[in-house]
Design a protein around this nucleic acid. Structure first.
Lengths: 338, 338
DNA sequence: GATGGCGATGTTAGCGTTCACAGTCTTTGC
DNA sequence: GCAAAGACTGTGAACGCTAACATCGCCATC
């Protein structure tokens, strides 16, 4: 117990100084009508003089709205989640909300549940789950009913709106680009099996090849890391001429492996990545890739969340798909043997 | 106004169900002594049955502690800030604190002030400022006295403890490594002038060269982006044999520029980066770089913050320096003309 | 068997807001 | 010039929790 008797001023202090009731101060703060301009000025001046700041905790207690949004995410060190988080934060703050984050080391049904419960007890008004793994999508169905939620890349989550990038379409774009260049078929280095994004890209890859009536090579699988792309690159058959890699980091690893194997890109092998990380343009060679607009994803997820908060009505199941875009650089070219 | 009369259970509901007073429920929840085991069990069971969750807002109102920590950061899309944020979040949650973030688009005195005020009114118990720019460090001196804060990479901030990586030492390591390999001198592509990290690396570079009695080449400057490294790479004089780049992204750009200029790395030019991003190992060639342990930085900053919270006493000015580590890969080699 | 002490529980009063309502003071219309 | 309709302002009671104190047993002590 320190003798520090200093207490930040409260509404009553402001009221007293301005010669009004605390309720009038509240009215001024909340910009309610029917306050005379002169008294409003007095109150504002008193607030200024005292350096008063409204106590949002007390406000939250009575209004039952904290104006805090919770975000549950997986490894915010990765470019995708980090960018999405950033987009969410910007959008939320723009709408006058705070953002409280929980970053999970592992996505399991239980860890997601726990994180959500944790945020719920803190009194968040809504939750965004950025967790593109199947388990996470399932865990979402155990969100308390009274708290609005949105899933990012959440698959066909029950009862919760979903925002996602068009993974299938993006993958198609990549594969079609390679086919148009004249490649017979396209290999794929996929992301980990339990990730919905990996799944979508696999689907798009298969769909594009099937649609063009090409044979489906055996699929290689990585874990998003450059190293796993490198390892896949060492295993890539010598007769492959085109590879679609599920993310840019693995593509980087692949490029490295190919360089070590003295395989020239794009002369002998064309490579397409996914994400368009800022570095992609400066890979050796600059990487053709599929761009995802993460900040748009973040913004949409907040929009959907706020929509639920405003209507307060039954949750409209909705799904927002953000298109992906092919960025053509110099890691792709027609096959040698044309 | 919906007819939704559903209200989550409150302490009184639990109390009634367990046949005790709400205060006893509180005691159980807070694990205070002097509650008979049998009543504790009854309370716990009632909590379980009702699915009760304590309302942390109400708790915060009366205890004047929210158990929320605020983080103000700059562009959480960058690898460094994102990793630091992640480290902070992990450490904070481990200590039972929530993390509320504000990510700034531009670091100015005013924007930092505003962000801090914003967090303060939300009632955070403490603030971590991750903002390695000079303006931010200054803005920190305007933090309200009653709220503990810690700066990450904050320079010699007044009255606030600082956690930082040993930028100068890291840069020295890089330059000394190059000199030991036999290079006459080392060029430097620096980060933007107003960043303290850039400044520290410049200092280390200069110090190492001066200590070895070498001439100081003209310094090139970038903005951390791969593109700026690329542009600097185009301007690099042909007689340069070794370059220390202030971060890995710019180093990537440099590698690209050198590749285009048909300059072989490391045969003709050696390159050292800074950060050790996960991709660095797979650059062409794998990049020798200086590793910063961002998660350790995050952990230390939380430690320092909690220390202030616990002691509640006068703020002990402290400074924690996290050492940097040289990671030797294959982008460095002895100069050709040895 | 009165006294004290201590463990276990209950009671009351806030924390700083907003909400619902009750006032009071101006207008306005005729 | 007077009533009614508005504008403006104040009063009390929540919100759900913890802190401080009060109370009740029960046992040890002399």
């Amino acid at each position: 117990m320190s003798k520090n008797a200093f207490r930040p001023p409260v509404m009553a202090d402001v009221a007293q100084r301005a010669g009004v009731s605390h309720q009038t101060v509240s009215r001024v703060l909340n910009e309610l009508p029917n306050v005379r301009q002169s008294t409003k000025d007095r109150v504002l001046q008193a607030i200024e003089e005292l350096g008063y700041r409204r106590n949002l905790t007390a406000r939250a207690l009575v209004t039952r709205h904290s104006r805090v949004l919770g975000v549950v995410s997986f490894d915010t060190t990765l470019y995708g989640p980090a960018s999405t988080l950033h987009g969410i934060e910007q959008a939320a703050r723009g709408a006058g909300y705070f953002v409280s984050i929980v970053s999970l080391k592992a996505i399991t049904h239980d860890s997601v549940r726990e994180a959500i419960g944790y945020l719920a007890s803190q009194g968040v008004d809504g939750i965004v789950l950025v967790a593109p793994q199947r388990q996470a999508a399932q865990a979402l169905s155990s969100v308390p009913d009274d708290i609005p939620a949105v899933a990012v890349e959440g698959g066909r989550a029950r009862k919760v709106p979903v925002v996602s990038v068009d993974q299938v379409g993006g993958a198609r774009l990549a594969v079609e680009h390679l086919l148009e260049l004249g490649h017979r078929t396209v290999w794929h280095i996929a992301g980990p099996a339990d990730w919905l994004e990996a799944e979508g890209r696999i689907k798009g890859w298969q769909a594009a090849l099937t649609a063009a009536d090409r044979e489906l090579p055996e699929m290689l699988t990585g874990d998003w890391s450059p190293r796993s792309g490198y390892e896949a690159g060492l295993e890539l058959p010598a007769d492959a001429t085109a590879v679609f890699v599920a993310n840019d980091q693995m593509a980087l690893g692949l490029l490295r492996a190919l360089a070590e194997r003295r395989i020239k890109v794009p002369k002998q092998v064309s490579v397409v990545g996914f994400d368009d990380v800022p570095e992609a343009e400066f890979f050796g060679p600059p990487l053709t890739t599929v761009r995802q607009d993460f900040s748009l994803v973040g913004r949409h997820s907040i929009d959907l969340l706020l929509e639920q908060l405003d209507t307060d009505g039954p949750i409209r199941r909705r799904r927002v798909i953000v298109p992906a875009e092919l960025i053509t650089r110099s890691s792709t070219a027609p096959p040698r043997s044309t």
